[in-house]
Amino acid sequence: MKEYSLYLGCLIPNRYPGIEKATKLVLDRLGIKWSELKEASCCPAPGVFRSFDQNTWLTLAARNIILCEEKNTDLLTICNGCFSTLVDANNILKNNGDLRVQVNDHLKKIGKEFRGTIQVRHIIEFLDKEIGAKMIDEMIEKPLELKVALHYGCHLLKPTKERKLGGAEFPKFFDGLVEATGALSIPYEGKNSCCGAGGGVRSAMLETSLKMTEFKLERIKKAGADCIVEACPFCHLQYDSGQVELAKAGKIFDVPVVHYSQLLGLALGYSFEDVGLHLNATRNPGFESKIALLQKKDASIK
C-alpha cells in the first residue's frame, strides 16, 4: 500500500487532540503507511474563507495540497470541513485552467506550483474503499455492542455531484463501517440533518446554531442511542461542547460524542483514555462503564 500524508487541520490538534491520537493508533494497527503532513496551515475552513474570497481560499488550499505533491503522497483528512475545502479545491484547480494560472501566479512568489498530481481522501471513504468493512470486522478484538446514532456530516457527502460517494438521502457506507465494530447503527428522525455548526454560523450566531443541534440531540436521545458517532471535529465540537452550552439553559442530554477513529480504536482494544475520549466536555459515566464492561467481557471470553 502506498503512503498517505495525514493532514490534521486546526480543530483536531488544537481542540480535540484525542481524535488525533486515536487516528494515529488506528492507522498503525490497520497497517496503513502514513506520515504527518508538516508545515500545513488551516485548510482554509470552507464556511468563512470560501464565503469571503474564492481566490484566497483556493490559494491557501493549493499550498496544503502542494505539500503533499512534494512528498508524492495522497492527502488523508479526518475532518469533513478540511475534506470539503481540499477535495473541492483540488478538483477545481485540476479542471479550471484559468483559476489554476491565477493561483499559481501567487504561489510562484513563495516558490511553489500546483501540479494536480495527488488525490484528497477522507478517512471514512478511504476505509470503506481501501480496507473495507469486512476486513475491519475481522480485525475487531472488542465488538462494541452499542446503539450508535450515526451523523455523516454534510460535507462528507454533499455536494454529491462533486463528492461522487453516492446519494445523500440514504447513504450506507459509513453505517457499514460503524457496524463492523460490532455496534448497531440505529435509525433516527433527522439523521441526515446538519449539526448546525457550519458556514460560520457557530462562530457568529451560537444560539442559532445550537437550535439545530438541539433538534438533532432530542431525536438521538429519543431513539435510545448510547452515543453519537461522526467523522468531523467540527460536528464533534458542536455536539460535545454544544451540550455543555445547552445545559446552561437547562437542556440536559448527556449523549457522548465519538469520532469514528475513536470508536474503531475502542473496538481494536484501546482504552477510553488511549483514544482520548476522557478529553470530551460531555462525559457520561454510564457510557464509560458500559465500554469498560464490553472490553472486559470480551477479554474474559478469550
Partner: peptide
C-alpha cells in the same frame, strides 16, 4: 497529557507561516 508532541503545522515552522502570510497579502485578503 496524552503523549502527543507539538503539532507539525505552520505553528512549528516559522518559514511556512511566513509563506502563508505572504499568500494572504498577495490575494488581497
Amino acid at each position: 497529557n496524552i503523549g502527543l508532541l507539538e503539532t507539525e503545522t505552520v505553528r512549528k515552522y516559522p518559514k511556512a507561516l511566513k509563506d502563508v502570510r505572504k499568500l494572504l497579502e498577495l490575494t488581497g485578503f
